[in-house]
Design a protein around this nucleic acid. Structure first.
Lengths: 153, 153
DNA sequence: TATTGTTATACTCTATAACTATA
DNA sequence: TATAGTTATAGAGTATAACAATA
């Protein structure tokens, strides 16, 4: 009984740390993106195209786990702001292929560079064994969490 | 040069794990809350009152880092759904004190129980030294991240 | 018939500004 | 005058449903 109580406190501590990390990361990401005129959704869309090349709006809807209607709105706004461009599909005239403008590409690359910079800030002064322990712990958390989330989809 | 490149990969790996944890936690929290008829904002409001007792809408606006106008809307909706209740302030008739209904209290307690359950799920099978390493790593990340966020506010 | 994307409509969270009632 | 909360209005992200163009 005493043992269980003791463990419960350790779990709570660990979970508190995880939750605070989630909140602070979310906050940091939002302000970084906002400085570039991007919301979380817009950044996600930009990133998917940067990784996979020009995508149809249907494909974007699946990648962002959102209805096709929302992609229309996101692409409208991002096209107006010069991040993306609608183009025809060579084989299917129903499809609108969304690609990045030069500005979209450079924004994606800057986001990537800032992410690496954050990595250096967070881990650059961390002892190697602490970093190893962190990654090992996170990997185990992810191994438990991933199937939990998959099941709920 | 080779050393730096090596470290950069280690940082990227660690950051990737952190970001995936953030995304999955966020997803898990949202679906857990949605099952109870709560959004993230509503849950935050509920939690603040549960921790601190009845609060004025001004205090809630500060706690949620949101304009007072939004509290009006959140409280309207949550009162309609039976989670909270507006009451008078004994000393100042301008103030609307928001407190939890019995349903609000039990919802907050259920959320807390589910959080502990998640802690058991994630950490219950984790070796003690791995858990220690995880917490140590997260603490160092938070020590770097907290001042970064504070500065941006 | 089925698929792609759009128009029409509505809900939640967010913000600013003007206003009411208290202090 | 200053504060607490509301009404009025607007914008972003989300959802469903009906529809046009294309397959």
């Amino acid at each position: 009984m005493k043992y269980h109580h003791h463990m419960a406190e350790r779990f709570d501590t660990a979970l508190d740390r995880m939750l605070e990390v989630v909140v602070l990361f979310d906050h940091d990401m939002r302000s970084t993106l906002a400085a570039r005129g991007l919301s979380t959704s817009r950044a996600h869309l930009l990133w998917e195209i940067h990784r996979h090349g020009p995508l149809s709006q249907r494909e974007l809807a699946q990648a962002l786990q959102v209805t096709p209607r929302n992609i229309t709105g996101l692409v409208d706004g991002m096209a107006a702001d010069g991040f993306v461009l609608r183009g025809p599909d060579p084989a299917d005239r129903r499809i609108s292929r969304v690609s990045l403008t030069p500005r979209g590409v450079s924004t994606a690359e800057e986001m990537r560079a800032e992410q690496q910079e954050l990595g250096r800030t967070l881990f650059g002064t961390m002892p190697a064994d602490t970093l190893d322990g962190l990654v090992r712990g996170l990997d185990q958390v992810l191994a438990t969490l991933r199937p939990l989330i998959d099941r709920s989809n």
